[in-house]
Amino acid sequence: MAYVSSGVACSHVPALGVASDSGNTTDDYYGPIFQGFDFSKEWIAKEKPDVIFLVYNDHCTAFDARVIPTFALGCAAEYQPADEGWGPRPVPVVKGHQRLSAHIAQSLVLDEFDITIMNEMEVDHGLTVPLTMMFGQPDAWPCPVVPLAVNVVQYPAPLGRRCYALGQSIRKAIDSFPDDLKVCVFGTGGMSHQLQHQRAGLINSEWDDRFMNLLVNEPDKGCNIDHIEYLREAGSEGIELVMWYVMRGAMNKKVEEIHRFYHVPASNTAVGHLILENR
């Protein structure tokens, strides 16, 4: 049977993709960030997941303002890196796992999560930057990816506890898939940041630390952080941290924290990263 082995939380700052694509990963500004992922690259080379289930948000790329699904599950054979205005990132095509996607889609709806099904979808930096941070620059991504896009652009994003419950439902779906597959779940985005208006540049490291502690050790409590707290304390774009709770919901109640990294800044953002293993 398929099973969830581990979880990864990771910011998806576009500037990190640009830095990697332009070979600029060792200077004074970006060097410390990429060093924080050296351990992670070694870890995932040993972990060798068969599939990554990757929770991210689209930045008006696959979805502009015409259609805004709250939860959209990728069910395609592959996903092309999108042109976000500067040409597509020079990274490999993201291969899907259609049978697992189809199984999860069906299982979620029957479990009362009425998700949107995407049979064609381009993917932007929200999905490809975490892959870059974990795998570097391979000729092909080492395993297929099942993407789940979450709306965090138009308020309200789904509640943290709804994301947590969705993660639990995804876990049930994975656990009931008949093939032997080791699955690693990624929750991406964050950490505290605000990109807009006069308060842009907001960083709240103390809050970020508390968020990570709750996520790892007390997810039943942390998933109830309400939207106004995210907006006020973590910045208007920090609310995308709800996506980490989808990952957390797919993990066991008790997890082991294998790695934690936190750094300010990458462009406008605090970078946060966790590796969790199921106990």
Partner: peptide, 24 residues
């Protein structure tokens, strides 16, 4: 763009970020 929206300009905005960002 953040330098423009905050009225700080790029250089001082970038410096604020390197110094840990805008405090809460």
């Amino acid at each position: 763009l953040a330098g423009l929206m905050t009225g700080m300009g790029s250089t001082s905005y970038r410096k604020m970020m390197v110094d840990g960002g805008r405090s809460i």
